[in-house]
Nucleic acid binder design. Structure first.
Lengths: 163, 163
DNA sequence: CATAATTCTTGACTCAGTCAAATAAAGGGG
DNA sequence: CCCCTTTATTTGACTGAGTCAAGAATTATG
């Protein structure tokens, strides 16, 4: 998958434009800015994407957007998700988190104390856990989602962790 | 685990009373009614638990409760969860779903179309998927949660499914 | 440059869940 | 059997996340 390398350099506008158009989406400043923000920060909430976008915009980056509405943010993220550029997870107790779709099949470890999320490469290969038979009775699996719950190193040591 | 057989018969009040007191919880009509409702219906939302409880109550069952406040419902479910009698899952896009804690380590298959949830026994044994090493870097896993997404038999056939 | 199609903003709204304080019920001791 | 302390429950206001609908602005094409 070359996707990651394409979007990992937010400075390269042409790549972002091509990426969007390849997927049948118009290239807009907001979409480019959201992709850039996610390329630099995995696991952002919708609100955090908004903050990143405006922060990057105010510092005059390549996708200079200084504001975008909440609805616009949801629209952009949903459009990117629909064409497969972006993926979201919704750990219990957390608002949705967005990340670039890397094409690998990684899962997530979520700290019960601080809520931090780590990527966990899937040990089983590229399309693991897909055991249609397990579900039985005609259920057709298209995705297996795994979340490991526990404590991250920092929270386990710190004891009084709650950030 | 004998838990399931204990609470699977909502008519047996004495069992529910003992179950609660064993866990250090007072036996109240609401708690017994919620356990009864979950014994008969897996994967209920908070609202559905409320409906079941009032429905069962109005038909004069053993835990005759005809009403309970929303906050009371949340309190009861949280108390039961805390002592390990009840478990909840929160599939993306759905409000929290509650089920009795059966002690097995089953997972869930969720239909993308109709939202129905099926239990899927864990193929790997009683405490599967717990691969602390996979998370790396000092993360200590205490639970692995697996959700299989796909289409249930009914929705796959029906085509225009959306219930 | 004009136009049609798509995207974005605005503001009201819903739904799920939480907080805090007053009221009611449970269960053990007299 | 009744009282008292502890524990549950109700009430009502509130927050946060996400959605809906309609009008305004932007994109890309001819």
């Amino acid at each position: 998958m070359t996707l990651y390398t394409q979007v990992a350099y937010p400075g390269r506008m042409a790549d972002l434009v091509a990426l969007l158009r390849d997927k049948g989406l118009r290239s807009t400043p907001h979409r480019r800015a959201v992709l850039s923000a996610l390329a630099q920060n995995p696991h952002l909430t919708v609100a955090q994407v908004g903050e990143e976008v405006t922060r990057a915009g105010s510092s005059g980056g390549p996708s200079a957007v200084t504001e975008l509405s909440r609805q616009g943010l949801y629209n952009v993220l949903e459009d990117l998700r629909r064409v497969g550029l972006v993926r979201s997870i919704e750990p219990a107790g957390s608002p949705a988190l967005f990340e670039l779709q890397h094409g690998d099949n990684h899962h997530h470890a979520v700290c019960r104390s601080c809520g931090s999320v780590r990527d966990v490469p899937c040990a089983v290969g590229d399309t693991p856990c897909l055991e249609p038979s397990a579900a039985g009775d005609g259920f057709v699996v298209d995705e297996a989602e795994v979340v490991w719950w526990g404590l991250c190193a920092g929270c386990r040591d710190g004891g009084r962790a709650d950030a």
